[in-house]
């Protein structure tokens, strides 16, 4: 199967810091890829470069064969509105806090041209149910929601237009452990049901094991190891991955 997204030779330096150092990756339709690595290893930077939010100093990102950084802003925003989704670690970065839950979910539909209020509302209701938010809260503001609910709302808002590729940056970060587990289950179920390709950044090896078909291990801006999740975790090759895995097992 041909790759949905293919990046090669990505370089991005902030002064002396190599946030991305010759990074290459591929993601196929319906595939879930986890990016793990210590803080500052370049995970968020990689996601932002792949999603066209930041230009690399060298290298290319191809989506469906098109160069993401050469296509122009209008085309890129078009992708962001239709084919892609981005789930931020902090739901406040991904939600409109002064807009009701229903309006948050409906925004992408309206941006895509939906002009029937009743249909938009029905779809928003449906999506609130899918992410386990009581549809009776459709007109409530996100500020009145718990952190876990806000994150689920952000996911509903992102998935409502059925994107093909979703970027998630530590979607469970900052949440209680029990809430994290529930959210991961939900993400796993939705991803499988919708057949989404997902690139998910996480600190959490257990989360990667639960969700991802493949994983990439990053360190100092480089991908030091990548492969099928079970292979990487059961038989880590790079000393850094070995350290990462053993520290989780020890905990």
């Amino acid at each position: 199967m041909s790759a949905l997204m293919r990046a090669s030779g990505l370089q991005l330096h902030f002064g002396k810091v190599a946030a991305l150092d010759d990074v290459a990756l591929e993601i196929h339709p319906g595939e879930v890829v986890a990016i793990v690595g210590e803080s500052g290893s370049g995970k968020t930077t990689l996601l932002r470069v792949l999603a066209g939010m930041m230009a690399p100093q060298q290298g290319r990102v191809l989506y469906d064969g098109q160069d993401v950084h050469a296509m122009g802003e209008a085309a890129r925003r078009g992708l962001m509105r239709s084919d892609w989704g981005f789930v931020h670690q902090n739901p406040r970065d991904g939600l409109r806090l002064r807009v009701s839950a229903g309006g948050n979910v409906g925004e992408r539909l309206m941006a895509a041209g939906a002009r029937h209020y009743g249909n938009i509302r029905a779809e928003a209701t449906e999506w609130l149910k899918r992410v386990e938010i009581d549809p009776a809260r459709i007109d409530d503001m996100p500020q009145t929601f718990s952190g876990g609910m806000q994150q689920r709302l952000q996911i509903a808002r992102t998935l409502v237009t059925r994107p093909r590729l979703v970027f998630m940056d530590e979607p469970t970060g900052g949440l209680d452990v029990s809430v994290q587990a529930r959210l991961l289950d939900l993400i796993r179920a939705l991803v499988a049901e919708l057949g989404l390709a997902v690139l998910i950044v996480t600190h959490d090896i257990a989360a990667a094991r639960l969700l991802a078909h493949r994983m990439l291990v990053m360190r100092h801006g480089q991908v030091v190891e990548q492969g099928l999740t079970d292979r990487v975790l059961d038989d880590p090759q790079h000393p850094y991955t070995q350290l990462l895995v053993s520290s989780v097992l020890a905990a």
Binding site: A74, R81, G103, E107, A111, I120, R121, D139
Partner: peptide, 18 residues
């Protein structure tokens, strides 16, 4: 520039919802 006016409809949506 991009005729990206979904947000204006969100405002109308909010009016009707409320």
């Amino acid at each position: 520039a991009l005729a990206d006016y979904g947000l204006m409809h969100v405002k109308l949506y909010e009016d009707i919802a409320r």
